[in-house]
């Protein structure tokens, strides 16, 4: 199963990277989101996959999942949320100001 998930993560990274290199600003943001998903999955997988019980003390037995990566990923998701929404607003403003979301046209003059 780990192989399957690692390969899936690799594909997500590829797609995310491809989107980062695109010319449309929305696609770049999409790429950023895809890569964050992939990273969250990677952290969880690295800690060992386990379909046991949830990390609650009264439920936990010998096969409960590891709570630490959960806490780490939760923090990452929230920070990612903040960053992504900031990026979205930035892209929105860029579009409003320059009337394009084409990064090639947003280059500005040479020698900057």
């Amino acid at each position: 199963m780990e192989y399957l998930i690692f390969i899936a993560i690799g594909v997500l990274f590829s797609v995310g990277t491809y989107l980062l290199l695109c010319r449309s600003l929305l696609k770049v943001i999409g790429g950023f989101m895809v890569i964050s998903h992939a990273v969250h999955m990677l952290i969880l997988t690295m800690a060992g996959l386990n379909t046991g019980s949830a990390p609650l003390v009264d439920l936990s037995g010998s096969d409960s999942t590891d709570p630490l990566p959960h806490a780490v990923i939760l923090t990452a998701i929230v920070i990612g949320f903040g960053l992504t929404s900031f990026l979205i607003v930035l892209a929105y403003r860029t579009y409003k100001a320059h009337k394009t979301d084409d990064l090639e046209k947003l280059r500005g003059a040479d020698n900057e």
């Binding site: 780990e2 690799g10 990274f13 590829s14 797609v15 990277t17 491809y18 290199l21 990677l42």
Partner: peptide
């Protein structure tokens, strides 16, 4: 570039 990034991530994580 995208493919090499993906392949590398998979291999490094494995």
């Amino acid at each position: 570039i995208a493919a090499s990034v993906g392949a590398l991530v998979t291999m490094v994580s494995i």
